[in-house]
């Protein structure tokens, strides 16, 4: 089956990837009493820790920084998990791939679904903080929907391309994890991008900044310049095309390297 047709067949097999993707998230907490609530607890702890540090350095702050963190961290986690989990998506499904004649991208989409489910789960913390501090949500927040579509396209492309490469090259996954660790510090995720820094190279040439910005700003009621939207869209389309191309190249031999 040609690789691109296989991708399309996988998209149509939505019942399999939706079930396995959601189940992946539930499975992580299957033998714990609190279950998926642990995701929310660990997210709260992380945000609270960062808030305390900021408060001790910059003095008392308002709710804006908490809200900023509550959306930035899940958005960053989503992008990071697309890249890290995407690299391991076929390796993790080795047992299925070797036993059932299913289109392989099903297991890539499964990873994308698991990342998205996890993301929405983490947004619970944002919702809680927004309710506590009575953060208004206007129609501007609807821009979050196209932002999510753009990010999903980026995620699908990244997972698809990295999945085949991750099987072929086993040091790709730790290498990506290392880069992600560096980019977490360089990207305005836990630090607020002040105007002086907006034109610096680490923000201007940082693709993660644009992807996070389009998800973050609609929920924080800030406006986004059309340039940011266009750049994010270009990054997503470029990643999607690159992902399809790499998948097509790696697909014929990927089963041998599993």
């Amino acid at each position: 089956m040609p690789a691109l047709k296989e991708v399309w067949m996988s998209v149509l097999a939505w019942k399999i990837w939706l079930y396995t993707g959601v189940d992946d998230v539930l499975g992580r907490y299957r033998r714990t009493i609190l279950g998926p609530l642990w995701i929310v607890i660990s997210q709260c702890a992380f945000i609270f820790g960062l808030y305390l540090i900021r408060k001790s350095i910059a003095g008392p702050d308002n709710a804006n920084y908490l809200l900023f963190l509550a959306i930035s961290i899940p958005a960053w986690n989503l992008i990071a998990s697309f890249l890290i989990d995407g690299t391991n998506s076929l390796l993790r499904s080795k047992g299925y791939i070797e036993s059932y004649p299913l289109p392989m991208p099903i297991f890539v989409i499964r990873t994308v679904v698991a990342c998205l489910v996890n993301f929405f789960h983490l947004l619970v913390v944002f919702a809680l903080i927004a309710i506590i501090y009575q953060h208004p949500l206007t129609l501007n927040a609807l821009w979050f929907i196209p932002a999510l579509l753009i990010i999903t396209m980026f995620g699908f492309g990244a997972c698809l391309g990295l999945s085949g490469l991750g099987v072929r090259f086993r040091d790709l996954s730790p290498a990506i994890s290392a880069v992600i660790g560096l980019m977490f510090v360089l990207t305005p995720v836990f630090w607020v991008p002040v105007p002086e820094l907006m034109n610096s190279a680490i923000v201007r040439y940082n693709p993660f900044f644009y992807l996070i910005e389009i998800m973050r700003e609609p929920l924080l009621q800030s406006s986004i310049s059309p340039n940011v939207w266009m750049t994010a869209l270009l990054i997503s389309v470029g990643t999607f095309i690159a992902g399809l191309t790499i998948y097509k190249m790696t697909r014929p031999t990927v089963i041998y390297w599993l």
Binding site: I16, D23, G27, R30, S93, G95, Y96, E98, S99, Y100
Partner: peptide, 22 residues
């Protein structure tokens, strides 16, 4: 490959349902 791909923490019936979907 009998047994390959089973989810160890899931029950037998849940695994059967998953394989049936496959």
């Amino acid at each position: 490959n009998l047994g390959s791909g089973l989810e160890a923490d899931k029950s037998g019936i849940e695994n059967m349902k998953m394989i049936a979907r496959f």
